[in-house]
Amino acid sequence: MQDLLNLFVKSIFIDNMVFAYFLGMCSYIAVSKTVKTSVGLGLAVVFVLFITVPVDFLLNKYVLSPGALSWISPSFKELDLSFLSFIMFIAVIASMVQLVEMVVEKFTPALYSSLGIFLPLIAVNCAILGGSLFMQERELETLAEATVFGLGSGFGWFLAIVVIAAIRERIRYSNVPAPLRGIGITFILTGLLGIAFMSFMGIQL
C-alpha cells in the first residue's frame, strides 16, 4: 500500500507528464486559453489514462512480452511479440476513446456537448500512448501499480494544464511584447513552471 502511494505521488509531481517528459504538449498549448476548457480536457485525459494503462498492462503481460503466450501452449515460450506493441496499444487507445465517447454521449449528454471535439482528440494525445509505453518500459509488476501509475500521470497532466490556463487568463491583461504574444510566452511560462516542479526532484519517498 505504501509503495502504491509512493508511485501515485511520484507520477504526479516528480514524473509529471508535461514538465518532465513534455507529453501532450500540443493540446496542452492549444486548449489552455481558458480554465473551463482545460478542466474538461484534463478530466477526460485522467479518465482515459485510468482505463487504458491497466488494459495495456494486461495486454503486455499476457500477449506481447517475450514468452507471454505460454498460457496457450508451452511451445510458444520463445515467441516475442513486443514489436507489435505500438500498433496494439494505439488500437486499444482508439477503441477505448470511442467507447468512452459513446458512453458519455448516452449517459451524460451535457458533459458530451461541453467536451465537444476534445474527446476524440485524446486518442492522438502523446500523453496517453506515452503512459502505456512508460508502463511497458519501466516493467511495472502488478495491475494495481499500472492503474495507480495511469491515474497519477493523468492527475499530473490535469494539474499542469489547469495551472497554465489560469496564468494565461491573467496574462491577457499584461504587456507582453508583440512577438511573444500567444504561444511564445506560453512556452517560456511552461519552462518556468518546469523549473518550479524540479524542486520536487530531491524528495525521497
Binding site: 513534455f22 511584447p177 512577438p179 511573444l180 500567444g182 504561444i183 506560453t186 512556452f187 517560456i188 513552471l193
Partner: peptide, 28 residues
C-alpha cells in the same frame, strides 16, 4: 541539459522568428 530550458529556448526562437516576420504576430 534539463527539460525546462528546452521550452524557454523554443520561446526565444519564436520571439526571434516573429520579430523578423511581423506577419506571424497574433492579434490581441
Amino acid at each position: 541539459i534539463l527539460p525546462p530550458m528546452a521550452l524557454i529556448t523554443v520561446g526565444l526562437i519564436i520571439w526571434i522568428q516573429r520579430s523578423r516576420n511581423r506577419v506571424l504576430i497574433e492579434e490581441k
